[in-house]
Design a protein around this nucleic acid. Sequence first.
RNA 1: GCCGCGGUAGCUCAGAAGUAGAGCACUUCUCUGAAAAAGAAGGGGUGGCCGGAGCGUUACCGGCCCGCGGCA
Length: 315
Amino acid sequence: MLKKLIVILGPTAVGKSELAIKLAKKFNGEIVSADSRQIYKGMDIGTGKIAPDTPNSLTHAFTHQEVPHYCIDVVSPVKIFTVIQYTKLALAAIRKIFKKRKIPILCGGTGFYIKAIIDGLTIPKVEPDWKLRAKLEPKPAEELFNKLKKLDPNRAKTIENQNKRRLVRALEIIIKTKKPIPLVSKKPFPYPFLILGIKLSEQETEKRIEKRVKKMVNLGLEKEVANLVATHGWVPAFQTIGYQEWKEYFTPLNSKHLTGFSGKIDKDKVKDLIALHTRQLVKRQMAWFKHDKRIKWIKKQPEAAKLVRNFLKPC
RNA sequence: GCCGCGGUAGCUCAGAAGUAGAGCACUUCUCUGAAAAAGAAGGGGUGGCCGGAGCGUUACCGGCCCGCGGCA
């Protein structure tokens, strides 16, 4: 039995999911999502999530158009989800699909997650220590940077001295292990994989973004956000495009919850912001993918099918 | 028509008599337990137009044009 992995990546709003489903049906595959936002339960409209035929929280999988999907709807938005957790879930799903003698299709736009799977990043096993982070966070970046320079000079060289998020993580590792961060090492995915990237022209992307935003709002994004924030408050997971933009729109009841409309910005402004941020995201995603020479860029689905057929051919 | 306020970067606006800044946008880049996150670097302005005073002005004075508010 041949074990091969198909990867479909590309920026937001280019139609990755559709392609993945088509290929899954055609080549007997199952889909593993690689999307850092669709991980969260309840964040449906704003993340462009597909609708499940039948949810199944036990296996962390659901089916859509009868194709099983994994790594969607796995945690509550109050939780912070990390690459490591993702890697565990995704690899488990891939193993399971192999066992069923099917083809796993890794599909999403989160480059970091995809990289973690196919290049097998070996990330230092130091769990986030939120207490420690809360202690370090308020300090000025200079102080954190100088501290890191003393404790782990090599790591300090690789982090921009204003990037507190990374400085804090680096400090967390050195403080808890007392050892410098090991050099970058990888354990690549052990079976052959084909990476397909979907890329559209700028105008095409622009059109799709506008359509996407309009559709989301029509589907009731405002209500989704209002409900989520009413039950969870403005948790970090809502620092997501499609969600964060509503913060100004609503009047906060207290620091966490909202009650009504602020009148500061209107719905059109919110839509504009979502579209703008989506455009920026697309650029960032493309910047991430750009340098990976293994990606086979395609525009139309037939091209993909052809490439996949070739790839799956036993040699 | 009169009175007032304003016209400075793509947008919103600071500022000072000695040839200009900020935020956002834009371009490029980084990425090893928050990644739709968190950061870095960079480009860009005949300062509404015309004239005058002044060593010199986008900044002062006058006229004109345009926008906003008020009064008739």
